[in-house]
Amino acid sequence: MRQHLHGKRWLVISALFSIPAALALLVRFTSPDVPPRGLEFLLGMMLLPQLLIPLVALLYASGMIEDEQEEQTITYLLVRPLPKWGIYLVKFLATVTTTVALTAAFTALAFAAIYVGSGVPFAEWSVRLAKIAGLHSLAVTAYCSLFGLLSLLTKRALIVGVVYIAVIEGLLANLPFGIRLITVIYHARMIAYRSLSFVVTTPHMEEDIAAEAWQLNLREDPQLLLHPAASTSFTSLAMGTIACVVLAAWLCSQREFHVKTPEKA
């Protein structure tokens, strides 16, 4: 955890995570008629989980082992009587602890920027905050397991990860095709939709903004019987996370690590 929090990386990530709160304040000052729940959806359920959370997970998880090699500190870990898979698991736990703490804290900051002074009772939006922060924590854990595995499969984990975020999680997960069943964000959305209401009420109409944005065809499938239940989505994320962690730990135990040595004068 000390490795994750030193240097400029956490400052850059904190700046990225502050964007939703800054946008919320900007919108509230310039367009005070925007419904708070609509703003919550755009920032808390679109911007954060679709872009910022996977990106932060990628920046942290892709460097779990690579950073140790670049800084030539992995030797001190390998000379100790510790199994390589154990080293990976501990570094994964440190990564998850760091990313979950940052995710929860800045999700709360975004909600405060959206709701404080809006007239919505704290008892109402604090419950939504708790559920969405928990959901974001589940998603960032799944992303960390995936990108941690990816970092052991390729040296270009950052590039491959960015492509994965943009194409798989960003594009294909928004289309009504079967491939979205293997994405993190789709299952996170199904849990959110089945446990929270995203109906926005205006003086002229009521609109389920999540159903439209997430391509959920309520006219033909009003009960969403063609989509997984919340428990199924939770199990899928949990099992996928465990599978990625176990496979990554095994790969780490089989790998021979080569460290850089100072060049002779």
Rank of each mutant, 00 (worst) to 15 (best):
L149F: 05
R180F: 08
A61F: 00
I19W: 07
V79W: 00
L149A: 08
S18W: 10
L196K: 05
S31R: 01
R255K: 08
V100Y: 01
A57G: 13
L11M: 13
G134L: 03
R156Y: 09
K155S: 15
L225E: 07
E66D: 11
K91F: 09
R128F: 05
F122V: 11
N174R: 15
I165D: 03
A213C: 04
A213M: 09
H4A: 15
V184R: 08
L5I: 13
T141N: 02
L138Y: 00
M205A: 15
S118G: 14
A230S: 15
D221E: 08
A248R: 09
A130W: 07
I159W: 06
Y88G: 06
L26N: 08
Y60R: 02
I179W: 12
A108T: 10
Q72V: 01
W125V: 14
W214V: 04
G44N: 09
A130T: 11
L171Y: 10
H227Y: 12
G161P: 12
T183R: 09
G44T: 08
E66Q: 06
A57P: 04
P262D: 04
T235N: 00
A229M: 10
L23F: 08
I242Q: 00
S62Y: 07
V162L: 13
W214S: 04
H258M: 12
L55E: 01
R37G: 06
L152P: 11
L109F: 13
T97R: 04
L47F: 04
L78N: 12
P228Y: 00
W85D: 12
A213F: 15
T95P: 02
A238Q: 01
A142L: 01
P81C: 05
T107M: 10
V56L: 09
E263W: 10
V79L: 11
H258T: 14
A133Q: 06
W125H: 10
